[in-house]
Amino acid sequence: MKDLSSHILDIVQNSIRANARRIGIELEEDLLRDRLTVRIEDDGDGMDEETLRRVRDPFYTSRTVRKVGLGIPLLTQNAERTGGSVTIESALGKGTVLTATFTHSHLDRPPLGDIAGTLALLTAANPEREFVYRHTSGKGEYRFDTREVRQLLGEVPVNDPEIVRAIRELIAENVSEISEEG
């Protein structure tokens, strides 16, 4: 994975497979503590203790079409090599919260990448799910909520190419204003 937006896209797929209706994605850039935190929270099926224990094992997956599951191990590797970590809290029927922390200034910290494009694609590809994105930094806060967007769109489909393009631009404009990255 080249950047954090790819990791986010990837981890959110786990929430989707767990039948989440509502997925929160939070990105916090704290330069005072030199930390970048990504938190992905869902209201999906959740995991029992046994699954939760095995979820970091690259040779564990809930899929049957292949034998490896690399999403969480790859994220953990990237977080740990910047001095950060990944924690996962979950219980059956209660959803899951995954928190990844990175040292913001670390050379090996993956760049944010195309956050706007990732969120626009997730919104377009999952019209039946709700996404809430919250980005905070020393410069301010931005919140994107697909419920607001859907309400505004009415019967215009959220996956119309022109709408997807507009959503991407909307997020990109706002994120670039508060991001602490170059």
Partner: peptide
Amino acid sequence: DKIKTLADLKKIRERVQAKID
């Protein structure tokens, strides 16, 4: 024009709505 607020998105919506009709 730049798309920066939900109001800007609404303008696009109007145009797409016409196209869909």
